[in-house]
Amino acid sequence: MEVLNTFFVAPFLDMGSDLIFLTEVIIGGMMAGIMYSLVALGFVLIYKASGVFNYAQGAMVLFAALTLVGLMERHVPLVLAIILTMGVMIGLAFLIERYMLRKLVNQAQIILFMAAIGLNFVFEGAGQIAWGSNVKKLDVGIPDKSFEFGGILLNSFDLFAACTAAILVAILALFFQKTPTGRALRAVADDHQAALAVGIPLNTIWVIVWSVAGFVALVAGIMWGGKAGVQFSLVLIALKALPVLILGGFESVPGAIIGGLLIGIFEKISEVYWGPAFGGAIEGWFAYMAALIFLMFRPQGLFGEKIIERV
């Protein structure tokens, strides 16, 4: 009975007793969730266009943030530093396409996944060799203050991050739905060979997608780094994005965003209300377990269509 109480009754009573606090917890979860969404978005773009399960996305976030901080430490003004970093990410996308993707065309997905893990090592090592491995502060001039709105405590930096993410997603959605490049990209995502057959330049598309993913990584890096400092643990948010992906689906942009928010909220709530019952430090696995249980009941994920198997 005691166990039932601590796990199934008490947490809900706690939630009910202080609704303002619950709202704050949920908002806090959404803020973290936006970050997961951003990383997951990078994953989804790359997976759709090049079939690579890009484990290195987290390392790309670290690499972008490190590059930006490194440039700013050398007194490069913020805007120029962002542009230069973006240039570096595009250059990397070019190198990756030229020396990795092009040579691994038509390989099994697991091979591509392994290559992405290899890339992860390269990014981690290169970022830290070039810019050092100590924790760095990233100040992009956004105020980090708390204020009250309707009795709820909010943080200006978080709000700014949320707005940036929302704008970014809107731009990406427009880019993919309305531009010719976006259409070409969707064609590539659907069927590589058919896209090639109608004359879509696969290699260019790959460079573009990896660049966009690099840009998303940079934004995630600025947001996350501005909040918690730029450090090695940034790569670990890649691990947070994985349950988001299986929840939302590897190929679904809305899935990545809604999934990220859900995982963020869920993780925060479980941490605050159930954490003590488990003895703490549950955020490492709780999201995975939740996503796994969800998938058991709905294998197609949040937005997937029911699969009809044909033979």
Binding site: Y99, M100, K103, L104, Q107, A108, I111, M114, A115, I117, G118, L119, N120, F121, V122, F123, E124, G125, A126, Q128, I129, S133
Partner: peptide
């Protein structure tokens, strides 16, 4: 030691990718 560790990471990663390209 620190530099060596990171360099090792890079070489390890590159060799993995190289190997996958040469003989998947």
């Amino acid at each position: 030691a620190d530099f060596a560790k990171h360099l090792e990471e890079i070489i390890f990663g590159v060799m993995i990718i190289f190997f996958l390209i040469v003989e998947p």
